[in-house]
Structures are given as structure tokens and as C-alpha cells.
């Protein structure tokens, strides 16, 4: 289980899009809308709930965050890149 506070994330099964669980139980592609869980029991319950929605999302897990100006910020570089996209410009057609 991730250190607290934490955010629950997964990938949409159909598209692979990275999503985060919101406080009202939705799945949002925006980390800023994620539910910041501060309680281990509630975190476990949120993960268990997503595990039952496998047609919608796959491989849910939690990762630790810190809250800055009311917005969850990942502690790891991996989750920062996962939430914001590659750190390099994507190749673009001219």
C-alpha cells in the first residue's frame, strides 16, 4: 500500500488512457481532480472497488502525493511524467 496521502490511478481498458479516481467516484484524466486519500482503509476500499471494474479500468494502484495549493503533486518522477505526458516534445509532422 502506498504511503499516505495517496491517489488512486489506473488505465482505461478500452483506450489505455491514464485516469484518477475523483472524490465523487468518477474517473478523470486530470490529476488535479483526483481524490487525495488520507486514510488507509478508504484507500484500500477505493482500490478494491476499481478492481471490480475491470471492463472499464485495468491494474489500479495508488501512489503517494503531497498537496500543494490544493492540488495533488506526485512524489515520484514516474508519476509526474505519467500525469503530465512525456518531458520531450512529441515528433510533429511539418
Amino acid at each position: 500500500m502506498a504511503a499516505l496521502p495517496a491517489v488512486v490511478t489506473a488505465n482505461e481498458t478500452e483506450t489505455g488512457t491514464v485516469v484518477y479516481r475523483t472524490p465523487d467516484g468518477r474517473l478523470s484524466p486530470n490529476l488535479s481532480e483526483a481524490w487525495v486519500v488520507e486514510d488507509a482503509e478508504r484507500l484500500e476500499a477505493a482500490l478494491a472497488e476499481l478492481q471490480t471494474q475491470q471492463a472499464i479500468v485495468c491494474d489500479p494502484y495508488a501512489f503517494p502525493v503531497k498537496v500543494e495549493a490544493g492540488v495533488p503533486m506526485p512524489l515520484s518522477t514516474r508519476e509526474r511524467i505519467r500525469s503530465q505526458g512525456p518531458t520531450v516534445a512529441l515528433p510533429r509532422a511539418s
Partner: peptide, 28 residues
């Protein structure tokens, strides 16, 4: 069958990998 929820991700994973489909950081 995967999208219909008839098979789990654990069951599907070896099938998709045999067809070159990985789950990466941002997408498949």
C-alpha cells in the same frame, strides 16, 4: 471479450502480449 468484461486483465495480458500489445506509461 476483454472489453465486455468476460475475461480479466490477468487472463488477457498474455494474449495481448502475444500480439505485441503492452501497457506503457501513458497508453497501450
Amino acid at each position: 471479450r476483454r472489453l465486455a468484461g468476460e475475461i480479466t486483465e490477468d487472463e488477457f495480458k498474455p494474449l495481448r502480449l502475444q500480439n505485441g500489445v503492452y501497457m506503457q506509461l501513458h497508453a497501450y
